[in-house]
Design a binder for these strands. Structure first.
Length: 649
DNA sequence: GCAAGGTC
């Protein structure tokens, strides 16, 4: 009886670190023919019963092994009417460039008693596990299949996972299979239909692909939605009362509790009552400690948002750079939803490695000498990867420019997480003046703490307030009515777009940047720099009616560092026409809205919970989209309008 | 020539 166990991870890097932990560093490495990345690691390990001491082959795949395709006779664009793709037969096949990897698993399985699957513990990982299982069955019908449950690659954790295997969860496998089938059928059907129809209408759309995808369309929808809100915005005038007082050579501005009103006559009346009263009285005086919280451990979505906010690098490029840094071993796996560090992780060891840096090394050392605080924990955990953090030190001078900036950000963010919150003292003075209440705020920063290593955030002491005492009365130095106007929100920026996608479940942390790049490539949207923008700390005040307040005509936006300006997304005529076309069809669920994708996400969770079956879900969803498809065909005018827009624009 | 999901 062969005492051999085959282990397969989702990616080469995991196979390697698992092999290192289980073997204690004693393993042989074999290359496989046909793929330069995959290695087979060979060693012995003592598993829990019934397996006991076994020889192990640890290898990996590189993500999915297989893909879903239409049967051969439906692959040509003119082979069938696009509508037939709703029911056309589909088949699963091993991707061309994955044949050698599948063959490796098939042949290794022949001599193995059991297969241990070490793919990531998320839905896609479960499905990849089922693809691995299938490849193993091709070589060995009776191989026993288990799955290791792990959420990081720490030694103890990995050994525990090896000794407590569970079973593959076929419910999760089914959920992913359903999504795959729907994305293929709907994507291909609508893409071919739109593209072919618009081609026959002539105009400038001859050689373009007018693609539809369950993620790219809602992404486009967000851009178009904001565009129209900006276009339709009507500015409104508002008025406010400002009170100033000079004391001890300091000028204090009190702001009105009512903030602002949209009726000038009322404001003037109230203001006159203040003047009549003449005297203001201090009604409340409060000093209290306040703090600014250190940031949460870094997730992919945050990295993408902050990359474009702080570093002005777009999300796709940030991800590409992060992947390179990961592949070189400088930072941890950059695709993670987790914003909590595992309790068992040795964070101090990671901080120590940063001690040698010229810029932040000194700060890292102060953390080790007592400044260290266990990071805050967020509410997200994908059970597969830790938050993004530096794993090794690399001298910034040896990195390319943007690479250096991303690495520095990851390091500084990590050190900030492990620091104490910033501490300050806030003072509030409230006064009664006539019938109106006003207040002034002062802040003194006492300890900067994490802010010393995290220059991306600002927290500055305001001008200190002069002394006031409770119930004292005084005559304000100056008071007047100010006038302002609400201004429209800007067009959508990339961080805003990513937030919307995240909140609506459009795409995954690993693919959001791709969807954004896709709608640019299709020329559904374009980006342009926002005029007059500079780096902000995300503290822009917003007006109550959707607009940003510009007081007395002068913009509150300050300077600040940062290269370049914020990019904003503007839909092209084509993008607008597509979304408007589908919104105008009159069905409640438009292709341009995020609801359908959101529902898909909910249904996938139901499949995982066992309350919905894969078949029911696929059929119901197909029927739902078929109605939209049929209606779109009937109302050819919808797409005709798109064509006209483009031709005569 | 289509999608979205993995990863290199």
């Amino acid at each position: 009886m062969a005492r051999k166990i085959l282990c397969v991870a989702e990616k080469p890097s995991i196979a390697k670190s698992v092999a290192q932990h289980l073997s204690g560093g004693q393993f042989n490495t074999h290359s496989i023919g046909g793929n330069a990345f995959i290695k087979n690691y060979e060693f012995d390990f003592n598993f829990s019963p019934p397996w006991g001491q076994c020889s192990v082959i640890m290898t990996s795949v590189v993500g999915h092994l297989t893909g879903l395709e239409f049967a051969q006779e439906y692959r040509k664009w003119n082979a069938c009417a696009p509508g037939q793709l709703f029911d056309a037969p589909v088949e699963t096949g091993v991707d061309k460039d994955k044949k050698a990897i599948a063959a490796n698993i098939t042949s290794q399985a022949k001599y193995a008693r059991a297969l241990f699957i070490w793919t990531d513990c998320d839905r896609e990982g479960e499905h990849i596990g089922s693809e691995v299982r299938q490849a193993a069955f091709e070589g060995n019908r009776t191989i026993e299949v288990k799955r290791a449950q792990f959420s990081n690659t720490e030694r103890e954790h990995i050994i525990r996972a090896a000794q407590n295997p569970i079973n593959l969860d076929d419910l999760q496998v089914n959920a992913v299979a359903a999504r795959t089938e729907l994305d293929l059928r709907l994507g291909a059907a609508f893409t071919r239909f739109q593209t072919l129809t618009l081609q026959t209408m002539g105009g400038d759309l001859q050689d373009r692909i007018i693609s539809y995808g369950s993620c790219q369309f809602p992404t486009l929808g967000f851009v178009v939605d904001r565009y129209f809100r900006v276009q339709k915005f009507v500015p409104e005038k508002f008025w406010s009362i400002k009170v100033m007082h000079k004391r001890e050579d300091m000028e204090v501005t009190f702001s009105w509790r009512r903030h602002r009103l949209f009726d000038r006559a009322s404001v003037v009346t109230m203001f006159e009552r203040c003047l009549t009263a003449c005297i203001a009285k201090v009604t409340k005086l409060q000093k209290k400690p306040t703090s600014k919280w250190r940031p949460l451990p870094l997730t992919t979505v945050e990295l993408q948002k902050l990359g474009s906010m702080y570093l002005r690098i777009d999300s796709q490029r940030v991800m590409k750079i992060a992947e390179e840094l990961y592949n070189k071993g400088w930072i941890s796996y950059p695709r993670t939803e987790t914003d909590t560090f595992d309790k068992g992780m040795d964070l101090k060891k990671l901080i120590e490695k940063q001690g040698q840096d010229q810029a932040w090394g000194g700060y890292a050392l102060t953390l080790l000498r007592g400044g260290f605080k266990q990071p805050r924990g967020g509410r997200h955990n994908d059970q597969a990867h830790p938050p993004i953090h530096p794993v090794n030190y690399v001298a910034p001078s040896s990195l390319a420019d943007d690479e250096r900036r991303v690495y520095e950000f990851v390091v500084r963010r990590f050190l900030a997480c492990c620091s104490e919150d910033a501490k300050g003292e806030s003072t509030t003075v409230e006064i009664q003046y006539g019938d109106e209440a006003f207040s002034a705020n002062g802040l003194i920063v006492l300890e900067r703490n994490y802010l010393d290593v995290y220059p991306y955030e600002k927290w500055t002491s305001s001008q200190p307030l002069p002394k006031f005492s409770l119930n004292e009365t005084f005559e304000p130095t100056e008071a007047n009515v100010t006038e302002g106007e609400t201004t429209a929100q800007g067009y959508l920026t990339e961080p805003e777009l990513i937030s919307l996608m995240d909140a609506n479940g459009i795409g995954t942390d690993a693919t959001m940047a791709e969807h954004i790049a896709k709608i640019k490539e299709r020329e559904y949207v374009m980006t342009q720099p926002r005029a007059g923008s500079a780096q902000t700390n995300g503290t822009t005040s917003r007006g109550g009616r959707g607009g940003r307040v510009v007081r007395g005509g002068s913009s509150a936006r300050g300077g600040g560092g940062g290269g370049g300006s914020v990019q904003q997304f503007i839909p092209t005529t084509l993008g607008v026409a597509l979304i408007e076309g589908y919104n105008g069809i009159g069905l409640e669920t438009s292709l341009g809205k995020p609801f359908l994708r959101k529902e898909m996400e909910i249904k996938m969770k139901e499949i995982c919970a066992g309350t919905t079956s894969r078949n029911d879900f696929v059929h119901e969803t197909l029927e739902q989209y078929r109605e939209i498809f049929v209606r779109t065909q009937q109302q050819a005018g919808v797409l005709k309008a798109v064509s006209d827009c483009i031709t005569f624009a």
